[in-house]
Nucleic acid binder design. Sequence first.
DNA 1: AAGATTAGGAACCAAATGGTACAAAACAAT
DNA 2: ATTGTTTTGTACCATTTGGTTCCTAATCTT
Lengths: 182, 182
Amino acid sequence: MARPREFEYDTALGGAMDIFWRQGYRATNLPDLLNAMGLTRGSFYKAFEDKEAIYLKALDHYDVQIVSRTVQMLETCDGESAIACLAELFKTDASDNRGCFICNTMVEMGIENQKAASKANAMAARLRDAIQGVLRRFSENGEISELTEKADLVLHLYFGKQAMGKSGGQTRDWEARLRSLL
Amino acid sequence: MARPREFEYDTALGGAMDIFWRQGYRATNLPDLLNAMGLTRGSFYKAFEDKEAIYLKALDHYDVQIVSRTVQMLETCDGESAIACLAELFKTDASDNRGCFICNTMVEMGIENQKAASKANAMAARLRDAIQGVLRRFSENGEISELTEKADLVLHLYFGKQAMGKSGGQTRDWEARLRSLL
DNA sequence: AAGATTAGGAACCAAATGGTACAAAACAAT
DNA sequence: ATTGTTTTGTACCATTTGGTTCCTAATCTT
């Protein structure tokens, strides 16, 4: 019952996620953020609370948009082995070294921002569960605790790869090395 | 032939390394930095160039002080297996979640700061070589390429662990999981 | 058409940022 | 003791920071 907003909430939020993902929280100033979201200060502070609040919303958006898609990929993967499915995780575009927003958040925010940390931890747990699901689907012997261990190992490896990738590390044949690992 | 400086260069540099390691580059402002180094603006800007320059110097200091110590530990480790030696890598103080300065730098600076990135990459390579050295010492069959692969895997795992540890992740029994890995 | 209500945008603001200027202080050489 | 040279610390500065104000524009309801 008034003037309708001219921008789409989710599109703007997606822009915020993108720039935070790429640059991190502190390296992204308001002009950067507003530009990425495609709106001006007035609209921004009207629709969103402040910089920290939208960072947290961007994390949620990442959860819904990116993590969920990855989880679904792992759940529905029809590869011929667990390794083939998990290798998909490691097939990120080499040229676009944004890394992983979860990992970036963990490193930049640490435990200083508890809200961000717990969101990151929760998303990491989702990924681990999905990885474990893949391992379970393809394994004959159902040693659950061992699968959890292995899944955690793969997750740590994934974060390590994302972290190292940000500084322009080489792309590797992860399928081969996952095979030698599992 | 003039007034001597009242602070020790390396001590101050050590303080800088410490605060950057703990907080990152952007999250550390001048007051933080000066406080950690134990000197005032005047002395700082006389002895060091500026914030970015000392960050790079802090990376070098990390290389000399921390990485070298780790490399030496790996080279002289008299554990009864490669796993026992490598497990030392993962035994960082859980309460002190600074992570790894190399990993932190990779994630925060990315390829934006080329100097920082290449220093980080170089240090990572040193670690990988040392890890490979451990694997070689304890392996019977001398498949070099395979050892390089394995070393790289352990290094990625190490960075992953450091990254995830920053957000307050749990400590794990890395010796056990390294055993299942290698 | 009128009024209510919300979005948009520009001007503005206080605080914090990294960095500089400069005078006082402390030493070495003479 | 005087001079020359370097360090130290404070006061200062321009810029950038995230955030607010407030006026205008646009739409819905009636």
